[in-house]
Computed example of a mutant assay.
Amino acid sequence: MTVFYHEGDLPAGLDLGKSIALDSETMGLRFGRDDLCVVQLSAGDGHAHVVRLNRPAYDCPNLKALLVDPSVLKLFHYGRFDIGMFALHLGVDTSPVYCTKIASKLARTYTDRHGLKDLSRELVGVDMSKAQQSSDWGAATLTPEQLAYAASDVLHLHALKDKLDAMLAREGRSALAQACFDFLPQRVKLDLAGWEDCDIFAHSWI
């Protein structure tokens, strides 16, 4: 594995193919309070690109162009959060998208363990470390351990997608999953508009 580090933006002309795994690291998990700090990507080739963003300008035209490219499928695990962060801080509507967490919940109904660590261990035999999950991603310099952690979150999403697609097809839920992926950017807009903790489809409202 090689981790390519980029300061501020992806290099111009970088071609990662038509299906790209993405994740982000932030200062916390609250929209409107916590900054987006790092975006990591992989083409599914065993290598990763890690972009440390320049805050608060977020001047990253190459990354932004990739996120909105309709010909490139963006793979996430819990994309709802990352897509929301991209909308807030980069000003882009990311699409088209695929979320392995949504796919797992639809396909793996025999378990309630849908985290990336559990999913990777079961489906692709990879035991991921989460030791750096809560480290300071806003630091001026990222440590080798942070870079390795960021890369690990995107290296296996293509393989997970293949496994989950087969399970979804087996259970007859491929079309349902695709409808959920198509709706995900709209769910993010509800989050950012103030309905983050509300299920507007529920009969009762608490």
Rank of each mutant, 00 (worst) to 15 (best):
E7N: 06
G8I: 03
D15M: 07
L16I: 03
K18C: 13
K18Y: 12
S24L: 11
L29T: 10
R30T: 11
R30Q: 07
R33H: 08
D34G: 11
L36F: 00
C37M: 15
G44S: 12
G46T: 12
H49V: 13
V51L: 14
L53T: 09
R55Y: 10
R55Q: 08
L63P: 12
A65P: 10
V72N: 00
L73H: 00
L75Y: 02
H77I: 01
Y78R: 09
R80N: 00
D82Y: 01
I83R: 03
F86N: 06
A87P: 10
Y98F: 13
I102V: 10
A107Y: 06
T109G: 03
T109N: 03
D112P: 00
H114Y: 02
G115L: 15
S120T: 14
R121M: 08
E122V: 09
E122D: 09
L123P: 06
M128R: 14
M128S: 12
S129A: 15
Q133T: 00
Q133D: 05
S135T: 15
S135L: 07
D136R: 14
G138W: 01
G138Q: 00
T143G: 01
T143S: 10
P144I: 11
Q146I: 02
V154E: 12
H156R: 08
A159T: 09
K161Y: 08
K163Y: 00
K163P: 02
R170M: 07
R170A: 10
A177K: 05
L184A: 12
R187C: 10
R187E: 15
K189T: 06
L192H: 05
G194Y: 11
E196T: 12
I200T: 09
A202T: 00
A202G: 00
S204C: 09
